[in-house]
Simulated assay, not measured.
Amino acid sequence: MELIHSQQNIREILATDTPLIDVRAPIEFNQGSMPAAYNLPLMSDEERSAVGTCYKQQGSQKAVELGHQLVSGEIRDRRIAAWRDACIKNPQGYICCARGGMRSHIVQQWLHETGIDYPLVNGGYKAIRQTIIESTKELLQRPTVLVGGCTGNGKTILVRELPDGIDLEGIAHHRGSSFGRTLQPQFPQATFENYLGVQLLKKSSHTARWVFEDESKAIGANSLPEPLRHKMATASLVVVSDPFEQRLQRLKHEYFDSMTRDFLRCYGEEQGWLAYSEYLHHGLSAIRRRLGSQRALELTALLDIALIEQKKTGSTEAHFTWLCPLLNEYYDPMYNYQLDKKQERIAFRGTYSEVFEWLTTH
């Protein structure tokens, strides 16, 4: 029944979104998982903890006996039924536990007793995780171009449109600024790295280079993997520079129009509006020290007026009263200061369409 997989086999499993029945406890799954994995645990967090305590105090044999006691009867039947359904829906999948050890073998054996033979990943999540780390390091050796420019120039949109573009902010569920959070929670660090690694594997067969947005060392709570930070430190750079008014319209759509719609859809009218307001206030508060307390108070007052106007008329353009000075006094000077340090690496400058054309022809 068991199939032993080389690292190359695991790469193929990941690149093709082959389903993984991950039988680790939820707490383990939530610390790190793969895009095509779904959690159908052999033991709950509480059961796993009890077995672990027993193992430390009484040894392996007693721990195994306790595990079988805890997962028996109706509990065992329900879990087997869930695994059977998953196997039938995903006949090409694999079972995965922490290290390809006892838990995945138990699940495999129980399924076999019901007439289903289903393979497991030798080495489990640990082997998959190691494959991700090694393949990411290897694939990042390819030529890399960064897309830079002040906020509102459509860098993320441009990267998404390129066949060799990797949308780091999309993977991170965060737009990278103090206003960058989305309604999707960010992944744990290991899961973020896993999703990034899988994206690289998926695109690796039809591209010879990578295009990333010029990011700092972290996107919200997710840090870029060390090999990527190292590569970005020396990569060529193309800089998007669109007219200020065009940038404002992009930011209006992304941070005000879309976020209002998302919050209201998610939480309803009253709570959604409060959550949207809190989101904007939190973003401004996060950079209060850099703005200076007096300027932060002034912009917050303009934000409050803009929110009243938006609620009354539905228009988000009133937010320009605080967004424009925020761009001119904080975000643009900060990015231009950082860009000055990278002058020798700039390969091209232009508008969005000019940069897009340059990237697709070079």
Rank of each mutant, 00 (worst) to 15 (best):
I4F: 14
H5R: 14
H5C: 13
I13Y: 00
L14S: 05
T16I: 02
L20S: 07
I21W: 01
G32Y: 04
S33L: 04
S33N: 15
P35F: 00
A36D: 00
D45Y: 05
E47Y: 02
S49A: 14
T53H: 13
T53G: 09
C54E: 13
Y55T: 11
S60E: 11
S60M: 09
Q61E: 14
G67P: 11
H68Y: 13
E74M: 10
R76A: 14
A81Q: 15
A81I: 11
A82N: 08
D85W: 03
C87T: 09
C87L: 06
N90T: 12
G93P: 07
G93M: 03
I95A: 05
M102C: 03
S104F: 00
V107D: 06
L111V: 00
L111A: 02
T114W: 05
Y118I: 00
L120M: 15
N122V: 05
G123V: 06
G124Y: 01
K126E: 08
A127F: 05
R129K: 07
Q130I: 02
Q130K: 14
T131W: 01
T131Y: 01
I132S: 09
I133K: 14
S135M: 08
T136A: 13
T136E: 13
L139S: 11
L139F: 11
R142F: 03
V145F: 11
V147F: 03
V147R: 07
I157F: 11
V159K: 04
R160G: 10
R160V: 07
L162P: 08
L162S: 08
P163H: 07
D167H: 01
L168W: 09
I171V: 10
G176H: 04
S178F: 02
F179L: 07
L183T: 12
Q184V: 13
Q189P: 06
N194V: 10
L201F: 08
L201R: 08
S205D: 09
H206T: 10
H206I: 06
T207C: 13
R209D: 04
E213M: 00
A218F: 01
G220C: 01
A221E: 10
L224T: 05
P227E: 03
L228S: 09
R229P: 07
T234S: 11
T234A: 10
V239F: 08
V239S: 10
S241A: 14
Q246D: 15
S258C: 05
T260A: 12
R261G: 00
D262Y: 03
D262C: 03
D262F: 01
F263G: 00
Y267C: 06
G268N: 05
G268F: 07
E269G: 05
Q271W: 03
A275V: 00
Y276C: 06
Y279Q: 09
L280K: 06
H281V: 02
G283R: 04
G283Q: 02
L284K: 07
R288P: 09
L297Y: 12
E298Q: 14
A301L: 08
L307Y: 03
L307A: 10
K311P: 00
K312P: 00
W322H: 14
L323V: 15
P325G: 03
P325A: 02
N328D: 14
E329G: 08
Q338K: 10
L339I: 04
K342I: 03
K342R: 15
R345G: 08
I346C: 02
A347E: 12
R349G: 02
T351A: 00
S353A: 12
V355C: 15
F356C: 13
E357I: 09
E357P: 01
T360N: 13
H362Y: 08
